[in-house]
Design a binder for these strands. Structure first.
Ligand code: SF4
Ligand code: SF4
Lengths: 161, 161
DNA sequence: TTTATTATGGATATAACAGATCCGTATTAA
DNA sequence: TTAATACGGATCTGTTATATCCATAATAAA
């Protein structure tokens, strides 16, 4: 259970775009050089980001990528969901097996098949809670917030001198 | 980014063990029938759980598995970490590339190579925060807490009748 | 002690996925 | 028109998840 390298690349690419949006249209060449990733591979990732409306792309001379919306509106969750997909963290594989009657039997209830129906599954309830929690946190952090912090930190270093 | 089926199986197996610890030593046969998983595969998972001290196992006639400690001391995090491993959610793949000088340059600081050193990386800071958050939540939920809730819910259903 | 039972671990097979590359095509600005 | 650039399909490789089989070890009961 780990984020893929693609997510790593996507985040860094976006940070670069967010940082250098003075001159628009950063090419895949510049990006791939910065991240030490092949152009081919990174372009796939950028395509995904474009399809999901995170960046804009323009081909041709002096073409390249730019953020499709302000960096403070691009959250970590946005990026992660584009790259990793939007499946749930936990998906029950056998809700129609005898398995979850285990939970039903805990109360020694006669109507065994009724109690923890899939819509009210207690295992999924815990896992979904974890996922909501995680999402809330990741929504609170944006490309811009990281850039801001970097800026603050470096200013601090300057002042110390 | 999803939990594996093995984690699903492990959780359900432990819930079963926690539920039926009246008579000790639940065999792999009973477990695999309950979960609709092959004995071979489930036994690998149980072995992992045993190696990590979550369950005890005893071979031979009337052998089987039992929880190695009270169900309220077995957290979701414990189980997930045994099965999924303990790697970090996010691991930077290229801290020695030019990449993270991006963050250093944000403040236009002369000493570019000093600023966001790996130990103080702002991307990892966000991701580690997310992970801590997730772990805290998963530590608060145990095998027992799910069984308790199932019990409560079923009692409630009984009272309604 | 013997035997039936049960867990263990190694080897292996398969499918899916991540990571990566190549290349022909489409699109745009100069 | 042309040079530069992004796009998307096909493909390749290595790794991991899932799964099975079998020989061996350990244990309790007879
Ligand atoms: S209890 Fe929940 S997770 Fe388990 S089998 Fe039923 S629906 Fe699936
Ligand atoms: S900024 Fe952080 S995540 Fe990015 S390359 Fe540097 S150490 Fe790695």
């Amino acid at each position: 259970m780990q984020f893929s390298k693609s997510t790593d690349y996507a985040l860094h690419a976006l940070l670069h775009l967010g940082h250098s949006d003075r001159r628009n249209n950063v090419g895949i060449k510049e990006l791939s050089a910065r991240l030490s990733v092949s152009e081919s591979y990174l372009s796939k990732i950028m395509s995904k980001l474009r399809q999901d409306g995170i960046v804009r792309a323009v081909p041709g001379v002096n073409g390249g990528y730019e953020l499709a919306r302000p960096a403070e509106q691009i959250t970590f969750l946005d990026v992660i969901q584009v790259i990793e997909g939007r499946q749930q963290l936990f998906e029950c594989s056998n809700s129609n097996s005898q398995q979850h009657q285990l939970l039903a039997e805990a109360g020694a209830v006669p109507s065994e098949q009724e109690c923890p129906k899939k819509s009210g599954c207690l295992v999924e309830k815990v896992m979904d809670g974890a996922e909501q929690n995680l999402h809330r946190y990741l929504r609170e952090h944006t490309i811009q917030s990281v850039l801001d912090e970097a800026f603050k930190r470096c200013n601090h270093e300057v002042n110390k001198k």
